[in-house]
Amino acid sequence: MSSFVEGFLRGIGVGSVYALLALGFVIIYKATRVISFAQPALMLAGVVLVSHLAVPLGFWGALPVAALLTALLGLGIERGAVRPMIGRPAFVVAIITLGVDVAIRVVVNIFIGLDVRNVHDPWGLGTLVIGDVHIEHRHIAAFLCAAVLVAGLFAFFRFTRMGLAMRAAADDQEAALAQGVSVGAVFALSWALAGALAAVGGTFAAAGGSFDGTLWLTALVALPVIILGGLDSLPGAVVGGLAVGVAQELVATYQNHTPWLGGNVSVITPYVLMLLVLLVRPYGLFGTREVERV
């Protein structure tokens, strides 16, 4: 029983990271109708920034600064590579973001170098023990931090003028323009938000150990998460991220009971879960029907 609870809580921690990454994808998708494949590079850039900045600034100083810088990087990508492509088929723009992703990761890898790096997080592999359940500090921290960010995001979209404008533009871009909403600002802001979220998510993915250039693969899990949650749904990204994290960690906990499946079934769990959900709900858990037409 305690291994189940441990697996579940670990899943919540890991899932919080997925949720942050998936939120970035969904925010960009809603604003621009483009699936950005540049999120892994943004994440890696953010993590590398934290690992360098944490030396002078400390972890808590480095994290917001890195998030801000990654937001600026996202803004730059939007301005330089995505904005000029407005009006082209969404597929073309998606491929362009893929190119941007590769290019940025090449540059970022230079700053990773050959040594293993770490983000100098305060948690390491420390655990909190309740009864016979061990919970890793970094998972608790990931969850709390994600909860704060998600609450902030929802408040932003619900109550602020720009947040409202972003929702309006997602609903009907031309009608939003006609109200005087600057759709360019909406695009830019969506990329900036996604950049910041990727940086924070990546930092928690890297916490507790060392990382190298392959960390970007973590961001790919956000793809089944957003398909599962519904491409255009922010709650879907959160619920989907947590669900995938929990499923993955539970499978990892019990996979040695099923040796014939091999030792790495947990890796494909997100995709299996996505398939299962799509069989029942073709638009994902919270997706809307319209998405299909895009």
């Binding site: 003028r161 409202l164 309006a168 609903d171 009608a175």
Partner: peptide, 15 residues
């Protein structure tokens, strides 16, 4: 904006 409340529609009008 069908997915927004009536009042939020109006707020966007006041952008």
């Amino acid at each position: 904006f069908g997915e927004l409340s009536v009042e939020d529609n109006l707020r966007v009008g006041g952008h």
